[in-house]
Amino acid sequence: MSRELLDVGSDTVNGAFSEMAVEVKELKKRFGSFEAVRGVTFDIGVGETFGFLGPNGAGKSTTISMLCTLLNPSEGSAKVAGYDVVSDRSEVRRRIGLVFQDTTLDDYLTAEENLKFHAELYGVPRSQTAGRMSEVLEMVGLWDRRKSKVQTFSGGMKRRLEIARGLLHSPRVLFLDEPTVGLDPQTRSHIWSYIHELRQRESITIFLTTHYMDEAEHCDRIAIMDQGLVAVIDTPEALKASIGQDRVRLTTDDDETAIEELESKFGLAATLSEGEVTVYVPGGESFVPRLFSELGVSILSVSVSRPTLDDVFMEYTGRTIRDAEASMSEQFAAKPWIRASRR
C-alpha cells in the first residue's frame, strides 16, 4: 500500500482506514540501566477503546509517551494512524489528541482562549474553529463557562476541558493518560460518561491508561501491563471468564499453616496477599463447608467472590495491583532518578 493512497484514504473517506489505528511491535524503552518497557506488541483497531491496565510504574505512561512521539523508543517500532512514531512524527501529532496525567492548560486564559490556542497550533480551518469549539465545549458541559479563566475551574472541569481540547482537531486516536486520576468518584463517573458519549459521536479510537480496575471494564479490550511487559490482552469479559473459578479469601489464626494445609489436603495453591489467604476454586460456596471441617487451623473469616479484573491481574501477574504498586514505590524510593527522568 503506497503512502499516497493511504494519505487520501485516511483523511477523507469514511471507514477507508486500511491499517490499524495503532500498531506496536516489540517496543522497548530504557532509561539508563532501567528498562521501563521491555518489549510490548499489540494492535488497536479503528474505533476501539483500548485500555492499558497496570500499577503505577508498570510502563504504561512510558509506552503512551512513545506512541505520542514524546519519547523515542530504544528499540522496536510503532505506528499510529498509519504513520511511524519516529520517522513521521508530525504526521502522527496531527492525528492524535492528548490528555496527560498532569494538566497542561494555561490558567490565565479562559476556556475558550485555551481552545483557540490549540486550534491555531493544530491548523484547524478558521471557518470550522468556532463551530468545532462550541461542539466540544457543549459535549463536556463547559459551554456556559467558556469565558471563565481556567484558574477558577475545579480539577474535574479542567480535565473535561482538556478532553475537549484533545478532540478539537478531530484526531484519529485520542490518548488519555490516567484520565480520572486524582478526581472524586462522582467526577470520575462523569468523565466516563463523556468518554462513552464521545465514542458514539466521534467514533474515534481511544487509548487510555488506568490503574483503577473498575475503569478498565469500560474498555473494549484491555492489556494488563506489569513490570514493563504486557501480560495478557483481551476483552474484560473474556479475561474474567478465563479465570473460571471463584475467589475464596480467608483470614486465619495461622496463615502459613493454612497455606500448607490447603496445598496438602486440598491440592490448592494458596497465596497470601493483603493479609488474606487467597485460593481459587470452582464452585466457591460448596467449598466453604469442606474448608471448615477439614482445615486444621481456626478460621476467622471467609469470603467468596466471582472473578473480577483484580483476580485477572492476580492470575496473570501473580500479585494484586495494590501489592504491585507498593513494591513499585519501594523501587522508586531506592532510585529517585527514575522518577526524575520520567517527567
Partner: peptide, 22 residues
Amino acid sequence: PPKSGRPPAHLGRTAAPAPIRL
C-alpha cells in the same frame, strides 16, 4: 484468552470522524 494483540473483528466498522483539513 488469546495472548495476541489482535482486536476483535467487530470493531473498526464505525463511521470515520468528520473530515477536517489538518
